[in-house]
């Protein structure tokens, strides 16, 4: 038995090292897994980063949902940024468009990226954006301003208890970092 030990040992060590490497990989795999998890559960109110297609025929006029918009700029982002519509009442399934205004008051060109967040988080699962400025980066030249549309509808499957939800956009200055950063969220 003792002669076999070194062999046994190295085989077991290799297996255990494989577990270690696997778990190291799993740590990184948690990053995309977390996104999947968020998509399912609505943690942090992340919205879908890709444009949805509008395929709802039945508008549920028996219900009205109030959608509020909040705009914020992050530290170091000098743009003016506001929602032209602060709140809007929609029927589930109804397609609506709202406008956001941004202006770069500085003397330099800046690339902005808006990050959405919905509260309560579960509402994010039923918010479908067919068109949004947050899907892409927004470059604005010095002094330039822009009116940015956002088109969305609320899935009629939205739970009865959600009557109002808030969509916030935080605008970040991503000038210069845009090439190195993966834009995987809209």
């Amino acid at each position: 038995m003792s002669e076999q030990r070194p062999n046994n040992n190295s085989r077991l060590v290799i297996k255990l090292m494989a577990v270690v490497l696997g778990m190291f990989g799993f740590g990184f795999a948690l990053v995309p897994l977390y996104d999947v998890f968020c998509d399912i559960t609505g943690i942090n109110g992340k919205t879908n980063p890709y444009a949805a297609t509008y395929d709802v025929q039945d508008v549920d006029t028996s219900r009205t949902i109030m959608v509020e918009f909040i705009t914020r700029t992050n530290t170091g982002m000098p743009w003016e940024f506001e929602a032209r519509t602060k709140r809007i009442a929609v029927h589930p399934g109804e397609l609506k468009t709202v406008q956001f205004y941004a202006r770069n008051p500085t003397t330099r060109d800046i690339v902005g990226q808006a990050i959405p967040s919905v509260s309560p988080g579960t509402a994010a699962l039923y918010l479908n954006k067919t068109e949004c400025f947050c899907f892409n980066q927004q470059p604005l030249q010095a002094g330039q301003d822009v009116l940015m549309p956002m088109q969305f509808y609320v899935d009629p499957q939205i739970p009865e208890d959600i009557e109002v939800f808030t969509l916030s956009y935080t605008l970040y200055d991503v000038t210069g970092t845009s090439s190195t950063v993966a834009m995987n969220r809209g």
Partner: peptide, 24 residues
């Protein structure tokens, strides 16, 4: 090194850090 695992500006999420940390 400029990644954005936990930075909202680059598509990351600070809460993700807590999930990974507490999974450990």
């Amino acid at each position: 090194f400029g990644t954005s695992f936990f930075d909202a500006a680059g598509g990351g999420d600070p809460v993700l850090f807590q999930h990974i940390f507490w999974f450990f």
